[in-house]
Structure formats: structure tokens, C-alpha cells
Amino acid sequence: MKISTKDLTLCGLFAAITCVLAQISIQLPFSPVPFTLQVMAVYLAGVILGGKRGFISQLVYVALGAIGVPVFANFTGGASIILGPTGGFVIAFPFMALIAGYSTNKYKSKIYIVIAMIIALLFCYIFGAVWLSVIGKMSFTSALKVAVLPFILFDAVKIVIVAIIGLNVRTRIVVGGLS
């Protein structure tokens, strides 16, 4: 796989955007998972960069956090976050960007891209909830109640925002010759 300087720059930029949006965080008292805008950054990476570059950008983000750079929510980082209760959600980010980005590369219809983002979110929810149930020693149903159900409405809004903004930005990047 050949990666150009432009690709590296765009991947780094979207890893940085994810770092910034992760810090817009509200810790909910009933959930180990904070409300952040990370998921929106993941979708933006996939929709704007496409599958491969979106995946790489989020892989860079996860790797930075795993080695201890405080890029995760509330300026945290390190393997303890990846191996902790919320690690499954974070590990799912590159795959979410891949799913959303693949759809954007293949289809130009907003409805297909929205469906792809919903599928990506379901992957994240299931993977993250399974991870939480194992690490947190709770039932899968309990994990869904504390780490998925409170976020569904907010994540649906993020999908709508990215469907509007992300596709417009992608179109302008393509027209501008940056893609």
C-alpha cells in the first residue's frame, strides 16, 4: 500500500481532530462511558477521507492514546484505557471509520452513507458493550443499559450532522483536488 505525503497529512489531521473532539467530554454519573464528540470525529474521518485513510487516521489516534499520549476523553491515555471498561469502544473507532468510509467511496447517496454510519455505530456498540461486560464483570444487558442506551439519541444527531457537513466537505475536497 502506497501512502503519499498528502495522505499522511490528512490522516494526521483527522487523528488530531479526533484528539480535540475527545476533550469535549461530559462524564455521566451512571455510566463508565463519557459523552464525547469522538464518534463524530470518527465519522468525519471515514466520510471525508474514505475507508483506507479514515481507518489509518483512527488507528493513529488509538495508537497515540495506547502509548500514553493523553488524547482520550478527559486528557487520558495509556494502555489502561485501552484495556479498561471503555477500551472496546475506542478499539472500534478505526473499524467505524473504515465502514463509513467504504460506503462513501462506493456510494454517493446520503441515505447509503447514513446506513453505513448506523452499521458502524452498531458495530461499536456491540463490540464496546461486550468488552465492557467482560472487563466490568457485568451482563451484556447491563452493559447496554449503561454504555449504549444513554447515547443512542446523541449519536443519531452526530450521524445527521456528519451526513450534512461531511459530504459537503468531501465534495469540496474532491473538487479542490485534495482527495
Rank of each mutant, 00 (worst) to 15 (best):
S4K: 13
T5M: 14
D7E: 15
D7C: 04
L8E: 01
T9D: 01
C11F: 06
G12N: 11
L13G: 04
L13N: 01
F14E: 09
A16S: 15
I17K: 05
T18W: 02
C19I: 13
V20W: 04
A22I: 05
A22W: 01
Q23V: 05
Q23P: 05
S25Y: 00
I26N: 09
I26T: 12
I26A: 13
Q27T: 12
Q27D: 05
F30C: 03
L37A: 13
L37E: 08
M40T: 09
M40G: 05
M40K: 03
L49Q: 08
L49M: 11
G51V: 06
K52N: 13
R53M: 09
G54C: 07
G54P: 07
I56D: 01
V60Q: 01
Y61L: 11
V62H: 02
A66E: 03
A66W: 01
I67D: 03
I67M: 14
V71G: 10
V71A: 11
V71W: 08
F72L: 06
N74T: 09
T76M: 07
A79K: 05
I82A: 10
I82W: 02
I82E: 10
I82H: 05
L83Y: 07
P85G: 11
G87W: 06
G87T: 09
G87F: 06
G88N: 02
G88C: 07
F89W: 14
A92N: 03
F93P: 04
F93G: 07
P94T: 10
M96A: 15
M96T: 11
L98D: 06
A100N: 10
Y107A: 03
I111N: 08
Y112P: 00
Y112D: 08
V114Y: 09
A116G: 09
I118C: 14
A120N: 08
L121R: 10
L121D: 12
C124T: 12
I126E: 03
I126G: 04
I126C: 12
F127T: 13
G128P: 12
G128C: 12
A129R: 07
A129T: 12
A129F: 04
L132P: 11
S133W: 06
S133V: 07
V134L: 14
V134E: 11
G136C: 13
M138R: 11
F140M: 09
T141S: 14
T141H: 03
A143I: 08
L144I: 14
L144M: 15
K145H: 03
A147W: 01
A147F: 05
V148Q: 03
F151V: 10
I152V: 15
I152F: 12
L153I: 15
L153C: 12
A156W: 01
V157F: 13
K158S: 07
I161H: 10
A163T: 07
I164V: 15
I165R: 03
I165A: 14
I165P: 02
G166Y: 00
L167F: 00
R170L: 09
R170E: 10
T171E: 15
T171R: 15
R172M: 13
R172G: 12
V174F: 02
G177A: 11
L178G: 04
L178R: 08
